[in-house]
Design a protein around this nucleic acid. Structure first.
Lengths: 136, 136
DNA sequence: TAATAACCCTATAACTTTTATAGGGTATTT
DNA sequence: AAATACCCTATAAAAGTTATAGGGTTATTA
């Protein structure tokens, strides 16, 4: 399941993209418009900033803005930052690889093969950019 | 993420299929061979039985056996029984549908569209039968 | 330059889900 | 009748999710 954090994160970048006028948008506005608890949102925003998906502008009239071309920001990136691996088991994850404690031979594990296929099927769908998401 | 319950369940049906000699296999044997905590496994077995994926034979020399043609048992079925929906958000689930509490208009929700596509991409991969899984 | 708006950070609490474990009961075979 | 194995409920330990609290820092603008 997608966590609420991740859902809020996706809503946030989509909102920032669709309301982009070159000016930052405050956490308060995002919180109200997208109905995300303010303090919870702050936490998510910081994480997106740390990973260079957003950048922030401090002071009055400050806020958040996409850190790069929205064509370069994908849903998969956002999900990885917030929830971790796209893959449903860690032994087939590219960026969050972990071996299964009980696994005897990873190369011949059929479950691994199946969920590897699954990951490979999921990825292209989730690699849509914010721009593409906005057009769905 | 796939739960351990679901992983154990998949391992169980794969084990039962590959060691099928027309005789039931005891929970104890499955537990030892697949290294699944016995009491935890019992719980999973009961759930698979309730949903007609396995049937059980009581008494000495009893145990569990696949309830139907292994070509008819899919990984998606097992996952649904144990973990619930395949979809990553409930509003695009076929069998476990739930609306999102905060959603204003489901028809125009882009997140819903994206995760609908994702579900549709995942399903054919997870609809492999136990027989197909064994051959991977 | 003071007030204000907005970001920044750590800790922790409430809640839910996952992962078991305990302890006994019931049915069937040998 | 004893042994084997399934059946069932309750509960606990651990982990993860979803926030909330409370204060600190930075920058703008009146």
């Amino acid at each position: 399941m997608l966590s609420k954090r991740a859902k809020y994160a996706i809503k946030t970048i989509l909102y920032l993209h669709e309301n982009d006028q070159g000016l930052p948008i405050s956490a308060k506005v995002i919180s109200e418009k997208e109905r995300i608890p303010y303090k919870f949102l702050e936490n998510i925003l910081r994480e997106l900033k740390t990973h260079q998906i957003l950048r922030s502008v401090r002071g009055a009239e400050g806020g958040y803005i996409l850190a790069k071309d929205p064509n370069e920001i994908t849903i998969a990136q956002v999900m990885r930052v917030i929830d971790g691996p796209i893959a449903l088991i860690p032994c087939v994850s590219e960026r969050f690889y972990e071996s299964c404690p009980e696994c005897v031979d990873e190369e011949t594990c059929r479950i691994r093969k199946l969920f590897g296929e699954l990951r490979n099927g999921m990825l292209p769908i989730l690699e849509k950019s914010v721009v593409e998401l906005a057009r769905l």
